[in-house]
Amino acid sequence: MAEKLRGLAFVVGDNVDTDQIIPAQYLVYSLTDPEERKNYGRYALSGLPPELGRFVQEGQWQSRYSVIVAGRNFGCGSSREHAPAALQIAGVKAVVAQSYARIFFRNAVDGGFLLPLETDLPLHERIRTGDAVTIDLDEGVLTHEPSGRSYPLRPIGDVEAIVRAGGLFAYARQLGIIKANP
């Protein structure tokens, strides 16, 4: 885990579902083919309502925003792991939300795609898309640069060992549940 993470925020509301994160029609693309998988970056968050603005600019393959700030129940809906993968491919390092749907959270942690961080506060009402934010993981705070205000993040909890290992497979190798090398 990097200790500090700085980037521009993209702000969404409550209940952003996986169909908005990556619409089902794009799930046909390979996640392993190096060229084909770029489509997931291109279409990440393309299902959002138009009034939230574009997460990835027309003709681009990645987003300028690397931190998503959301309300409650981020990632609800389908179990598609393509959702956290699409955000990672688009360049997202962390999501900061009030809560997550459990399969999205699991997928983000076990696949090591991004950091699903939690906050008790409705930061999506205090931060605007395009604002620079810094996340200090050791201190457990997010700093909103335009206002200079810092907000506490909840401890990662139960799954911290998996997050620190970088995903389920690395964690299971540490525990000796699976062999060191394939």
Binding site: S79, E81, N107
Partner: peptide, 18 residues
């Protein structure tokens, strides 16, 4: 219950899941 691809791949190899 439903899981993602990584968890499913883990089950394919081990039969186990946390």
């Amino acid at each position: 219950t439903g899981v993602g691809n990584t968890d499913a791949a883990f089950v394919m190899g081990t039969g186990k899941l946390w």
